[in-house]
């Protein structure tokens, strides 16, 4: 059972919900948490697990083999991403624009563009009691997050033992990295807040998940601010609100110190129980 925790708007409480759900579920089941918000991963601050392994992630990009090159310029005309330029008698590769399609390298008549590894990021595996936790962190300056997200999912599928629950802390937004982080999930929890910003970005996230044909539930965080419009929207759209979290300075302070809310707050434990029951129901 793979559950993605996502949102359109940033800072609505994805990480809070993901770490609390995963560690709470791990008290009674085997669970795995993946932090795939690779640009700014923060779950590790909350999990505080023991490091088991570190796996560097690479992506492939072409390099120019000058002596082999005939300067035909085929590579530059093939590349749809402007990652290869022919400037006079030299070929220039812009690896940050490369999508690793391999077309230039494999279609080069003389093999003058071999593919070479470039740093992409790092995957760290931790254990905290019955929870396995994978954190994937993008190298600063790398533009594309999606390849690291894909590699992390492959790593989990191929290298790690099966668990009862797999939770994914997703990147915000609705663009390609959010799609890659959610597209293998059996269920997606969209976290929002009851403000016009929260509602506007929730709509986008809901439309995105409908395109992917994902079953969704909504958790509304910071109840007490804003208005009722998020609830009206969910009711009209037939989307279940599977949990609510009250706005409180206490929670903001616990979050600031990267502490777990469920260990301090009984009401929040009930919320997590309800969410887990709902998740089990869709199996």
């Amino acid at each position: 059972m793979r559950i993605a925790i996502a949102s359109g708007k940033g800072g609505t409480g994805k990480t809070t919900l993901a770490v609390n759900l995963a560690l709470y579920a791990a008290q009674t089941s085997n669970a795995l948490l993946m932090d795939l918000d690779v640009e700014e991963p923060n779950s590790s601050l909350f999990v505080k697990g023991d490091l088991i392994s570190e796996t560097p992630a690479y992506r492939m990009a072409p390099v120019w083999d000058k002596p082999a090159c005939l300067l035909c310029g085929e590579c530059a005309s093939i590349c749809m991403f402007n990652a290869i330029l022919k400037l006079g008698d030299m070929i220039m590769v812009l690896p940050e624009l490369c999508h690793t399609c391999h077309a230039c390298s494999e279609l080069c008549p003389v093999g003058a563009l071999p593919m070479q590894q470039r740093p992409l990021g790092i995957m760290r595996l931790f254990r905290k009691d019955a929870l396995l936790f994978l954190e994937s962190k993008l190298e600063i300056g790398v533009e594309q997050a999606a390849p690291l997200i894909k590699q992390s999912l492959d790593y989990v599928n191929n290298e790690l033992p099966a668990t009862d629950y797999q939770f994914i802390d997703c990147p915000p937004g609705t663009s390609c990295s959010m799609i890659h982080a959610t597209k293998t999930a059996d269920y997606v929890i969209l976290v929002t807040e009851p403000t016009p910003f929260g509602l506007h970005d929730l709509r986008l996230a809901v439309e995105t998940m409908r395109q992917l044909d994902k079953p969704i539930g909504v958790v509304v965080n910071r109840i007490g601010i804003g208005n009722e419009d998020v609830f009206t929207y969910c009711r009209e759209e037939g989307i279940e609100v599977i949990g609510t979290i009250i706005n409180s300075r206490e929670f903001a302070e616990l979050y600031s110190r990267a502490e777990l809310m469920f260990t301090y707050n009984e009401v929040f434990r009930h919320t997590l129980d309800e969410i887990l029951r709902r998740i089990r129901g869709i199996r």
């Binding site: 940033g10 640009e39 700014e40 533009e143």
Partner: peptide
């Protein structure tokens, strides 16, 4: 938010960046 392609694109050509943060361990990282 983030540090990926839209952020890199918005930084290119900029003269000044205002970094808005909050005092949480996540915000600090």
């Amino acid at each position: 938010p983030g540090i990926g392609c839209p952020v890199i694109s918005s930084l290119s050509g900029a003269a000044y960046a205002v970094l808005v943060t909050e005092p949480s361990l996540s915000g600090l990282e």
